[in-house]
Amino acid sequence: MTDPRPILPPGQRPLVLEMQGVDKSFNGAVVALRKMNLAVHEGDFISLLGPSGCGKSTALRLISGLMPPTAGRIVWNGAVQAGDLGVVFQEPTLMPWATVAQNVWLPFRLRGQSFASVRDRIAGALALVGLENFHNAYPRELSGGMKMRVSIARALVTNPRLILMDEPFAALDEITRQKLNNDLLALKAKIGCTVIFVTHSVFESVFLSDRVVVMAARPGRVIRELAVPAPYPRDMIFRTSPEYAALCRDASDALVEAIGVAA
């Protein structure tokens, strides 16, 4: 792995990307997203929280460049190269015919870099997610949580400026999910990555992020932004603290409002 990015205090962090009044509609009628503004700074951990159909996944697809916005702009600070963006989907999305290490090699391979030339970075990424002993395993030999770890290793192996995660732990059981949440925060503390995390779990969003963006559906839009001021690292003590409970209630209220507005 390359050097970790230093995490500066909020307010001094350089901008990574900004969504400016972004609209997205399909077939000229269905409005998936309306006037979304979002500034992402280096080291941010932002959760997009909302009911299904609120456009949170659409926002990720727009940021990743898989489709263009109908109106508005998505502005990156500086030029973007392949590998500046890491993505983790809801499914692990691994190539079943390739070993764990070969899967993590993919972003480099597509840039024409040989396995040998990036062997150390692949090993580093797999060590970060705790899979140092599984380089030559095939995906089908791994559990759901381990597959997700491979997917995360692949997303961060290029040391991207931004990592997008689209409900990555939604399909996992609660125990695995909590473990991966803890590990994700430990990982963030180690390498200082910038993350946009889509979820429909209030508890997950508050535990992980320093900013929760609550969204409502029909049309998809941002209705509230909550700051989570608790310092990292966060652990079981934070998970059981009154502060955490209060923040979760705030987020829940906002979510109820979101669903209420939508209905």
Binding site: L66, V87, F89, L110
Partner: peptide, 19 residues
């Protein structure tokens, strides 16, 4: 999703076919 991932990493048509 893998097809999307290939696009995000800017794979060429040939790379997508091959890999």
């Amino acid at each position: 999703n893998l097809t999307d991932l290939m696009r995000i990493y800017r794979a060429t048509r040939w790379q997508r076919l091959r890999y």
